[in-house]
Design a binder for these strands. Sequence first.
DNA 1: GTTGCAATATCTTTCGAAACTTTTAGAATA
DNA 2: TATTCTAAAAGTTTCGAAAGATATTGCAAC
Lengths: 256, 256
Amino acid sequence: MRESETLHTRERIPDRGSGSLNFQLKKTPRNAEPRDEDAWLSSGQDLLARLRADIVKHTFAPETKLKFSDLTERYGLGIGTLREALSQLVSEGFVTLEAGKGFRVAPVSRRDLAEVTEHYIAFEKRALAQSIAAGDDEWETRIVASFHSLSIIEDLSWAERMRRHGDWVDRHRRFHEALVAACADRWLLRLRSLMFYQLERYRFLSKMNREKSPTRKGTEHRAIMEATVGRDVQKATALLERHVRETSESILGTLA
Amino acid sequence: MRESETLHTRERIPDRGSGSLNFQLKKTPRNAEPRDEDAWLSSGQDLLARLRADIVKHTFAPETKLKFSDLTERYGLGIGTLREALSQLVSEGFVTLEAGKGFRVAPVSRRDLAEVTEHYIAFEKRALAQSIAAGDDEWETRIVASFHSLSIIEDLSWAERMRRHGDWVDRHRRFHEALVAACADRWLLRLRSLMFYQLERYRFLSKMNREKSPTRKGTEHRAIMEATVGRDVQKATALLERHVRETSESILGTLA
DNA sequence: GTTGCAATATCTTTCGAAACTTTTAGAATA
DNA sequence: TATTCTAAAAGTTTCGAAAGATATTGCAAC
């Protein structure tokens, strides 16, 4: 018998204080029903989400070199798995790859923000219009629910809001997703989603540089919500456009 | 000295008759100038292109299971490298991934084609308009050149054209790329490119099912080219839209 | 000093095998 | 025959190490 005992034992580091301790759950515990549409994937799949979140949140600043030695330590996963996730982020535009030089966080720029903003507005307006035309009761209900969930945070004091900013980001995304959820155009939703995540990165950038906070956002979201469930396409899309464009313009100021 | 000689020799299978025999070129031979913008990447990067081409060309039919045992044999590359490329194709929408079940070629459908077509038309029209507004002499020249290169094939007899269909595909893509090359919106070009490749897959589908060939395509390309270099935005975009939409509609027929 | 070259160190890329899952096949039971 | 359980087979996912590049350092020559 060989004495190379620990050759490939595949043991996970118990945790790293990263918050989500979902390691060994593969998918569904073999009995639970197929879980609608979610299809929880392998550990490599939630790595993708974690990496993207860390780039969006500026845990890794733009143009930062993403070294495997650092990443394997941070996420407790192997090189191959890391490469796989980074490759997808290249396709999504969050990461760049240069031959033999490795991966870097994609740069940010005023021009890039301007482009992303306009595309996002165009996509979301169309998706919202289609959604309003096709949405049923369930769609309406989900919008009201996600708005309420979001407003709970937006009604808090500034300090509290900052503390729960991670929650705000999630609920903000869910609210906007709920608005367009009844749109039947799968590619439109996909493209919208792509631009949404790109914008989210810029939103974080502004959150970091902005001490003051005008916070008309809560009111704006309510107005969009009301126009949408009121099936007023013109008003809803116009409000949405102004909402997004004004946000981006305020970010443009901080990018200078 | 150990006698485990062939433990990891990384030897490539000389070829496989796949046409492009670019194996050992890493990048630039260490002296040649940095080669503008191309940035020739690792073997994993042209694998991505090869895989995408094989899906577009229906070498792998829609919904085909992509088994690693087959793929490693076909491309002569390791599992990790394959996974990396497939991951990117998931982001591009060419491949689907299900937990523990592996990769499959993404399905096709009339609905998907309709969506892709409309998005592609919208992107290319805008990119073309911007391109016409900003294009310089070099841009014009490249359009004329790529059109001529394309027309050489389109003027051939049907049998000849079928034989050189691979060339046609490349030249057709280059022609359309040349048209929009002067557009400054990087994201617009990126999104356009995404949709172009998706459409290309459907174009192959029709080429396979269509024995007859109306072949008004050559004339249409010439008209688009002339309107574009003539800086007639209205005419060029209108012709382009009709060109793309009619093609897609004829494909819709074969999809039944 | 600084320029050029070689040696070293650091990092990236690729690979195949081990661990793990799903599917298939077969046997046992009703 | 149909159904359920078990075992083997087939396939996927993850990992670390070897091979290959790039960046850094050290040293000499000018």
